[in-house]
Write a protein that binds this DNA or RNA. Structure first.
Lengths: 206, 206
DNA sequence: GTCTATATGTTGATAGAC
DNA sequence: GTCTATCAACATATAGAC
C-alpha cells in the first residue's frame, strides 16, 4: 500500500503518518488558505525541505492528507468499511459526516480545491478522487438497492444515479457553505433523503 | 453597472467587452489550464500589461469572464431574466444549460476553480457567486413554489431547500464530470427532476 | 492605449553540510 | 533524517517609453 516510498522502513513510515495527522489537525483548526508546503512544514515543525523528504511533491502531500482524512473519518463514522449498511444507517452516517465537516472548514476547502485540480489526469489526486468516488458509490448503491427492493425507497431512479446525486449534493453544498457559512449543509442533505423516501406511496399503495 | 472603470468611456468599455468575449471563446474551446493572465493576453492578442490595463487584477479579470458567460448563457437559454418560468420550463432550461456545458469544459473548470477561491470574502468573485446563487434561487423558488401549489411537485421539502439542492447537484456533477467526462451530467440532473415530480401521489391522491 | 522592461514576490524543489 | 541555503520558474503588478 506504500511501496514507492524510499529506503525508509517502519520508522520513516511512522513519521510520515505522524506528519499527516498533524497536518490534518492544523488545517482543520487553522484553515486552509492556499496552504503552501512551507506553511504545512511550519505547522508540523519541520523545514520545508524536511517535509518534502517524506513526499515526492506538494501535490502528493496534499493528496495524502486527504487520504488520511478519509481514514480518520472512516474510523469515526462508518465510512468505506461498512459493507452492508441499511439505507437508514447510510442516511444517518451521511448527515453525521456532513455535520462534522462544519467543524473543519480548512479540510472542506482543501478537499474542494483538490477536487478541481484533480481534473488533470496527471495530478496525483486524480486517481484518488476517482477511486474514492467509486468506492463511496458502491457502498451507497448497495444500501440503496436493498432499500429499493424493500420498497422503502423510490425506484423511479436507479440506485447508481441516486448515488451520484447524493455525492453531488454533498460536494455542491460544500461550495455553497464555503461561500456562506450560514447555509445548513446537513439539513439540506437530510432533505434529499426525504425526497428519496417520501414517495413510496405512488405506485405501491394506490 | 460599470462605474469603477477609469477615464475610459465608450471606446474602452467596448474593447473590454470584446476582450471578454474573446477570452470566453478561447477558454471554452482550448480549455482552462490554470490559465494565467499572460495566456489570456496572448489569446486575445494583447500583451499581459496591455490586458491588465482593462482590469484591476487577475482575479477581477476571471470574475468578469464568468459574468460575461452568464450574460451570454442567459441570452441563449432563459437565464436569470425569465421571471415567471413554469417548473417544466425550468426543468428544460436547466438540462439544456448543463448539456451545453459539456461543450465548454474550460469554462466549467474555470467556474469550479473560482467557486472554490471565492470562499475568501476578499476575492472579487465572492460577491459574484453570492449574488449569482441568490438570483438563481429566486428564480427557481418562484417556479417551484408555483408547481407545489398546483400539486405538480412534492411539498415534502420547501422550495428554498429544493432550489439549493438543484444548484448543489449541478455544481457537484460538474466536479464528477471534470474527473470523468463519461459521466452524464444532464441525465443526472434530469433524474433529480424525476425525484421531485414522481411522488405527488402520496398525500394528494390517496 | 499598448508596449517593453522590470520590480517584487512566492513557490516548489534540490544540493549538500551535519 | 533534518537542516540551511539556494535555485529556477513562474506569477502579477507597475513604471515609463512610444
Amino acid at each position: 500500500m506504500s511501496e514507492k516510498r524510499r529506503g525508509s522502513y517502519a520508522k520513516g513510515i511512522a513519521k510520515r503518518e505522524e506528519i499527516l495527522e498533524r497536518a490534518l489537525d492544523v488545517i482543520a483548526s487553522e484553515g486552509y488558505a492556499g496552504a503552501s508546503v512551507r506553511a504545512i512544514a511550519d505547522a508540523v515543525g519541520l523545514s520545508q525541505a524536511g517535509l518534502l523528504h517524506y513526499f515526492d511533491s506538494k501535490e502528493e502531500l496534499f493528496t495524502e492528507i486527504l487520504r488520511k482524512r478519509d481514514e480518520v473519518d472512516a474510523a469515526l463514522f462508518g465510512g468505506v468499511d461498512a459493507t452492508s449498511a441499511t439505507a437508514e444507517e447510510l442516511h444517518e452516517g451521511y448527515v453525521a459526516v456532513v455535520r462534522h465537516n462544519t467543524d473543519v472548514p480548512g479540510l472542506v476547502h482543501l478537499f474542494s480545491r483538490l477536487a478541481v485540480d484533480a481534473a488533470d489526469p496527471a495530478h496525483p489526486a486524480h486517481d484518488y478522487f476517482l477511486a474514492r468516488g467509486a468506492g463511496l458509490r458502491v457502498l451507497y448503491v448497495d444500501a440503496l438497492e436493498r432499500a429499493q427492493r424493500e420498497g422503502a425507497l423510490t425506484s423511479d431512479v436507479d440506485a447508481e444515479t441516486l448515488a451520484r446525486i447524493l455525492q453531488a449534493v454533498a460536494d455542491g453544498m460544500q461550495l455553497q457553505w464555503m461561500l456562506d457559512p450560514d447555509v445548513d449543509m446537513a439539513a439540506t442533505i437530510d432533505a434529499v433523503f426525504t425526497l428519496l423516501t417520501a414517495q413510496r406511496s405512488g405506485a405501491t399503495d394506490a
